[in-house]
Structures are given as structure tokens and as C-alpha cells.
Design a protein around this nucleic acid. Structure first.
Lengths: 109, 109
DNA sequence: TTGACATATTCCTATATGGGCATATAATTC
DNA sequence: GAATTATATGCCCATATAGGAATATGTCAA
């Protein structure tokens, strides 16, 4: 079996660095494709393809405006990733985390 | 160019659901491979391969103990992912969401 | 050493890329 | 309609899977 499709979920979509760049670029403001191309220095077809992947997993929203299409990051879809990483937070942060960790280790949890 | 290697960074390594499972399983306690196999119901070679990927990006640590090898999640490596997702946090939390909702309602999206 | 247990690696295969390039679709203006 | 601008898609290719089965390596015990 090959690797899961980039369109299968946000985790896979976000694994690609350029897509992360695009998401960062589009989070403060909606922008047309041409601005992404110019702003990030990527080829236009490449940007369109990445946007398609991002749209398929709901990481961006589109809106047509004349001959432009305005894309914007949909932050809600990033939230589950945040929540997942957050479950590990207590294991790197404070002492309380480590204490709890040890307690659970003893407990077999 | 194909997709980046799963060993290229934590983002790619974590894109695979089983590897996320393994990380969750190993975060509270170090465990031998056999326990991962039993606990998650995966094939042993598959687990070994996933562990290799996780080790290559620093997401797990290994320690030999007799004929067992004890693996444990290294939460520090997940931290950058958490930080990245966190940069979007303020965009899903408050007013921006409502503004967007209204705009989309008008737009029919 | 031999045997048993634990883990890692190798080979194979089907599939999903992501970039480059050319081209198609869409919307606007003349 | 024709020309122009903006974006999307199609095709080709090299590469990286992830699973399955078989096998190799490693460690301990008798």
C-alpha cells in the first residue's frame, strides 16, 4: 500500500512544506492565486494544485471575484491537528507533567 | 518530484495514522515492540518499520533491555508541530469566525 | 553450541505523488 | 467574436511509499 493520499486528511495535506507556507500566507487575508504565486515565488500550476489539495480537505475556502478567485485559510480545519499535538503537551512542559507521567507508568496506564 | 520522505521531518512522519497511534501508545511509558504489536494489533515488521521512521525524525527513543528494545515517545519533537498549529489559534477562536460566517451566508457558500 | 525468543531488514508490488510543460476553461474588455 | 487575463487541468516521469511474506540479525538460556 502506498502512502495515504494528501487529500485523505489535514495531517497529510499539511505534510507538504509549500502547503504550509500557503496556509500561513492566506490566514490573515484572502488573496487571489496570482498573489500567492508572486508572494511565495512558486509556479502558477503548482499553486493551483496545492490549493486543490487544501480545498479538498477543507483547509482553504474559495470565493470568486470577477476573474479572480480569492482563497483564504480555514483555520477550523487546523484545530484537530492542534488538539492532537496538545495531548503531548504535558509531557514536555512542566514538572507536573513528568510527575503525572511517572504515576501513570506505575499504574500501567 | 515525489512527495517528501516520511523521514524528512516530523510533519511527514506524523501524517501516517498508525504512527500517530504508536506515538500515543508510547507517550506514557516505554514499551517493547511486542507490546505495540499486541496493543495495536499490527504486524511486527510493520511496527518495526514505523518505529524506524519515528526514530529517524527523533519522535521516539530506544533503549535496549536484554532481548527487548524499549521504545518511548520523545514529546519534544512534537512541540514544533504544536507551535505551528498554534499560530492559527487566534483565527479560529473569536470574532473573525463570525465575520466570515456572515460573509459566506451572503455569498451563498 | 543449540534452541527459542525478539526485533530488524529485504524484496516485491500497487499507488500516490509533485514538478515541468503545454493546454484547457473561465471571465472581462474591446 | 477576438484578444487578454486568471486559474485549472492533463500528461509524463522519477521517486517514495506501506503492506505482506520471508528471512536475517541479535540476545539470552541451558
Amino acid at each position: 500500500m502506498p502512502r495515504a493520499a494528501t487529500t485523505s486528511d489535514a495531517f497529510n495535506a499539511v505534510a507538504e512544506p509549500r502547503r504550509r507556507q500557503i496556509l500561513e500566507f492566506l490566514v490573515t487575508q484572502e488573496r487571489p492565486v496570482s498573489e500567492i504565486v508572486a508572494g511565495l515565488g512558486l509556479e502558477q500550476p503548482s499553486v493551483s494544485k496545492h490549493l486543490r489539495v487544501l480545498r479538498n480537505v477543507g483547509l482553504v475556502r474559495v470565493r470568486r471575484n470577477g476573474r479572480h478567485k480569492l482563497y483564504q485559510t480555514n483555520p477550523e480545519t487546523i484545530r484537530p491537528l492542534h488538539e492532537w499535538t496538545k495531548t503531548f503537551e504535558r509531557f514536555w512542559a512542566h514538572q507536573l507533567g513528568r510527575i503525572k507521567e511517572r504515576a501513570e507508568a506505575k499504574n500501567g496506564t
